[in-house]
């Protein structure tokens, strides 16, 4: 474990807690893409299949359970909670995310570390996580100005993978035979997708104005 990875995991955890706070405090999920949340639930379930087979550490197991639990709870909340689900505007959350699932799965069938069930699903989860934010970014652009908690949620979600890139650079430099090319390349793509969001986030922060994404 290194500081970059720990910072990344904590930033990821904060992003999920901010989202839970927003939904719980405002009893509303307006501005949140259910499709992105469903993609994240798939990412965590597909990636953490080794939860019961490979014990890495208490920290690793606890964090996996938290990520799976929170992502499923958020999807449940947005689909079934009698108050929250009425605030979900499905007519603006129209990204065809099943194509993302299919595309990432096909890519994982061809590009993976080892052709085993667990490794192919792991690669699938890495590719899917890289593009999972797209429905949310599209929804942000469509819905113009959104509430602050949603903006913070997307910001922390983008920042966590940037920390992971520093972690991979650090591990590559300090550990012999460390090569996580699939995760590193996908992580770069994932962080790049946030680039314009980060730019407009910084501009809005500098001008102390609300975030305005160009439509």
């Amino acid at each position: 474990m290194n500081i970059f990875r720990f910072a990344g995991d904590m930033t990821h955890l904060i992003s999920i807690l901010v989202l839970l706070l927003k939904i719980y405090a405002t009893k509303s999920c307006s501005g949140i893409s259910l499709k992105t949340q469903e993609l994240y639930a798939i990412v965590f379930v597909a990636r953490y299949l080794d939860l019961f087979t490979d014990f890495i550490s208490v920290y690793n197991t606890v964090m996996k359970l938290v990520f799976i639990g929170c992502s499923l709870a958020i999807v449940w909340c947005m689909r079934l909670h009698r108050v929250v689900r009425r605030t979900y505007n499905k007519d603006v959350d129209t990204f065809r995310h099943y194509f993302l699932v299919l595309g990432c799965f096909l890519l994982a069938l061809f590009v993976h570390e080892k052709f085993t069930f667990q490794e192919v699903l792991w690669a699938f989860s890495i590719y899917l996580e890289a593009v999972a934010i797209l429905p949310q970014l599209v929804l942000l652009q469509r819905s113009g100005n959104v509430d602050n908690l949603t903006v913070q949620y997307v910001f922390f979600l983008g920042a966590y993978r940037a920390f992971y890139i520093l972690n991979w650079i650090y591990r590559y430099l300090t550990e012999p035979h460390f090569g996580r090319w699939i995760a590193s390349v996908a992580g770069l793509v994932q962080t790049a997708l946030y680039a314009d969001f980060f730019y407009y986030y910084f501009i809005s922060w500098k001008n102390n104005a609300k975030l305005q994404l160009p439509a």
């Binding site: 080794d50 490979d54 890495i56 964090m63 990520f67």
Partner: peptide, 10 residues
């Protein structure tokens, strides 16, 4: 061939 190292990252 050797098993890829366990995924110790989240």
């Amino acid at each position: 061939c050797l098993q890829p190292p366990p995924k110790d990252e989240l």
